[in-house]
C-alpha cells in the first residue's frame, strides 16, 4: 500500500495534468482549473507546514544531540520565531496589532527584511566575485586551441558587457551580442532539445511507475 498508493496518485495526477493541454473541451478545462486553483493550493499550504515543521525538528534535534555547529541552530530557530511573530502580527507597514516601533526604532517586517535579509543575501552572492576572480586567474590558461577560443570569447564578453568598450572598440558590444545571438543560440537550442527529450522520458517513466527513486528507500 505504501508503494502502490503514491504510484497510483502520480499516474492519475500526471495524466490529468497533461490532458487539458490537448483536450480543449470545457469539462477537461474546468476540471483542470479546479484542480489547479483549489487542490494544488491546498497541497502547497500543507507543504509549507511540512517545511517549517521539518526545519524546526531538524534543528531541535541538532541542539538536543549537540551535533556539529549546534549553536547556529539557536540563531536559526530564534530568527524564525521572531520574524514569524512580527510578520504574522505586526502587519506589513507596521499596521498590525503587535507594536513594531519603540520611539524612532522600527522593527516591522519590511525593516527587518531591508536591513538584515537584503545585506546578508547580497553579501553571500558578492563573495562569488572573489572566488571567480581567483578561479579565472588559476584556470584560464591557453593550453589548447579550444581553451584559447574560450579565453578569447570570455575576453570579448567581459569587455562587451561594460560600457567602456563603447569608447575603446565601438563595435565590440555588437560583436559580443552576435556571439550570444548566433553561436550561443545554436548551442543552446541543441542542448534544449536534448534536455527536453530527457525530461519527457523521465516524466513518462515516473508517471508509469518505472522510475521509483522519488519514493525513497530501496524496496
Amino acid at each position: 500500500m505504501k508503494v502502490r498508493l503514491p504510484l497510483f496518485l502520480v499516474l492519475i495526477t500526471g495524466i490529468l495534468g497533461a490532458l487539458p493541454f490537448i483536450i480543449p473541451h470545457s469539462i477537461a478545462q474546468n476540471f483542470d482549473n479546479e484542480f489547479r486553483n483549489t487542490v494544488i493550493r491546498i497541497i502547497g499550504a500543507f507543504s509549507l507546514v511540512l517545511g517549517v515543521g521539518s526545519i524546526i525538528r531538524h534543528h531541535t534535534y541538532k541542539i538536543t544531540h549537540k551535533r556539529e555547529h549546534w549553536q547556529y541552530s539557536y540563531v536559526l530557530l530564534i530568527s524564525l520565531l521572531i520574524s514569524a511573530v512580527i510578520g504574522l502580527f505586526g502587519g506589513i507597514d507596521a499596521n498590525g496589532w503587535l507594536p513594531t516601533r519603540i520611539g524612532s526604532f522600527n522593527f516591522d517586517i519590511q525593516t527587518l527584511f531591508t536591513y538584515i535579509e537584503v545585506p546578508l543575501g547580497a553579501t553571500m552572492f558578492a563573495m562569488l566575485a572573489f572566488f571567480m576572480a581567483s578561479a579565472a586567474y588559476r584556470a584560464f590558461r591557453a593550453r589548447t586551441f579550444e581553451a584559447t577560443l574560450l579565453l578569447i570569447a570570455a575576453f570579448i564578453m567581459m569587455l562587451g558587457s561594460v560600457p567602456l568598450s563603447n569608447y575603446i572598440f565601438p563595435k565590440l558590444p555588437s560583436f559580443a551580442e552576435w556571439i550570444l545571438t548566433v553561436p550561443n543560440t545554436a548551442a543552446k537550442r541543441g542542448m534544449g532539445f536534448g534536455i527536453s527529450l530527457g525530461t519527457l522520458a523521465t516524466s513518462l517513466k515516473i508517471i508509469l511507475g518505472i522510475e521509483r527513486g522519488w519514493l525513497g528507500g530501496t524496496k
Binding site: 575576453f155 567581459m158 569587455l159 561594460v162
Partner: peptide, 14 residues
C-alpha cells in the same frame, strides 16, 4: 574596473 582587473590577472597568469 573589476572586469579589467580580472582580465589583467588572466593575462599575467598566461
Amino acid at each position: 574596473a573589476a572586469h579589467i582587473w580580472i582580465m589583467i590577472t588572466i593575462i599575467i597568469g598566461n
